[in-house]
């Protein structure tokens, strides 16, 4: 009986972990001109929509001591920035082609997406 309960509980926990990490729907934030992205346990907002051929300013503000988040990398735009704690870091993009472009932390554990339309 005890083993049965542990098994059921374990299966439930696995399903819960799956739902918690993979079941969330990312809210897409449309950016007109500029946006502040808070770096705290990931990127908030995580998915942003920007216009093609327009200059967009992203201001990253790191509030998390996790050293993984100290580097911000946007590979498709060849951008790598060090984010000092509590210091806004401004990045200007002028995307010329549409698509989804990822950005992530130094060790590629936290991710965000720039959707160019």
């Amino acid at each position: 009986m005890e083993k049965f309960i542990v098994t059921i509980f374990g299966i439930g926990l696995i399903a819960g972990i799956y739902w918690f990490f993979f079941g969330k729907k990312d809210k897409i934030t449309e950016v007109h001109g500029s946006i502040m992205i808070t770096v705290e346990g990931g990127y908030k907002p995580k998915t942003i929509k920007v216009a093609k051929d327009k200059v967009t300013t992203l201001i990253f503000l790191r509030k998390d001591t996790n050293s993984c988040l100290e580097d911000l990398i946007i590979p498709d735009f060849k951008i790598k920035k060090f984010l000092p704690m509590h210091t806004p870091v401004t990045i200007t993009l002028s995307p010329t082609k549409p698509g989804k472009f990822n950005f992530h932390c130094g060790m590629n554990m936290f991710h965000g997406t720039i959707e160019v339309v």
Binding site: F20, G41, K44, K46, D64, N66, C68, M107, M109, F110
Partner: peptide, 19 residues
């Protein structure tokens, strides 16, 4: 301490890392 702080801020965001 850093492991716990990072974990907490990650979980608030429904994200997980090495920490």
């Amino acid at each position: 301490r850093e492991f716990y702080l990072a974990t907490w801020s990650g979980l608030k965001n429904r994200a997980a890392s090495m920490d």
